[in-house]
Design a binder for these strands. Structure first.
Lengths: 165, 165
DNA sequence: TTGATTTAGTGGTATATGCCACTATATGGA
DNA sequence: TCCATATAGTGGCATATACCACTAAATCAA
């Protein structure tokens, strides 16, 4: 396998040129690898991520959850549908703000999540083993940065400040 | 914005823990940013990537294209539908292998691609400016590695060799 | 040659995700 | 108080992407 530090060869293909295509491509691959490992839990990789966020945030409103996931609010609503249908998640109105709905994990949802965590640990440790623990952590930091609002603001501001230059 | 090299703070959130969730999240964000820039071309970011690959590979069979994109063959077929419907791409049977179909860019497809390229350059240069040119290249190498068959093989082999351990 | 197996694609179905239009609720003034 | 605006969600529609079952064609083997 080509080392990460190897810059000797030129761009072997166009993926090394377009950040967006490259990240989608890697996303598809990694999604498959994680999906295979998580399959016994009955959860898709994305669903596991969703449950994890709900768990982490407590009982977030959909708005909060969508922001944390850097996801469109309506997309989140759609994505939650199967989980609600299968009884892993419920939505309850927020008494403080009657527009809002808060996501809860049901007992069944917690159980699925617990199974998922065990499998996820396996997947993550394989990833770290294959990619390098240090590199893995660095990659996640980089991805976290790209996903941040600050990054988007900086990217977009350039458009306004210098539309064509 | 937090520097990439900054390891002083602990995991601020669960994204720094799960590579798969992190990459999907960054993917969503970056997809939005590129989509906004590419919008005037009438192409989605994914569609631009698709046209680029077809262009790069010549007149690839769907199988070849799917492999290059690390995409399921049937998913590719579905994704191509809008482009075929809109007359940007055509599929022609391969005389050598009558099972295969080769993707071609039409004149209209080439024109859309050309418009896309100009916009893409703008997006890519904004990305490089925001993320750092060197870091950007390194990131693409890392993503390319993750997407590679070798990476997948190494990841999967661990399952067989050491199921739990 | 012919039958078993593999490979390329297609169509159906399901999830993932985005945009837009619309409703309900909250909020910030005049 | 009451209206203008902003915010939270929902539903419809479109694309992105996966799996499965199925067909057609190529390939391999006896």
């Amino acid at each position: 396998m080509k080392s990460l530090a190897d810059t000797s060869t030129g761009p072997a293909n166009s993926w090394e040129l377009c950040s967006n295509s490259a990240i989608r491509r890697a996303s598809r691959r990694l999604g498959q690898l994680y999906a295979d490992v998580l399959a016994p839990s009955g959860l898709r990789a994305t669903q596991f991520g969703l449950l994890t966020q709900i768990r982490t945030l407590g009982e977030p409103t959909l708005r909060t959850l969508a922001d944390a996931l850097v996801m469109d609010l309506s997309a989140l609503g759609h994505t939650l549908k199967p989980l609600i249908r299968d009884g892993l998640v419920t939505l309850a109105p927020d008494p403080q703000d009657r527009r809002a709905r808060r996501a809860h994990l049901t007992r069944k949802g917690l159980a699925a999540y617990a199974r998922g965590v065990e499998l996820w640990k396996e997947a993550q440790s394989r990833f770290d083993a294959q990619f390098g623990k240090k590199e893995s952590a660095a990659l996640r930091r980089a991805l976290d940065l790209i996903a941040s609002d600050e990054f988007a603001a900086g990217f977009t501001v350039q458009k306004i400040a210098a539309p064509k230059k």
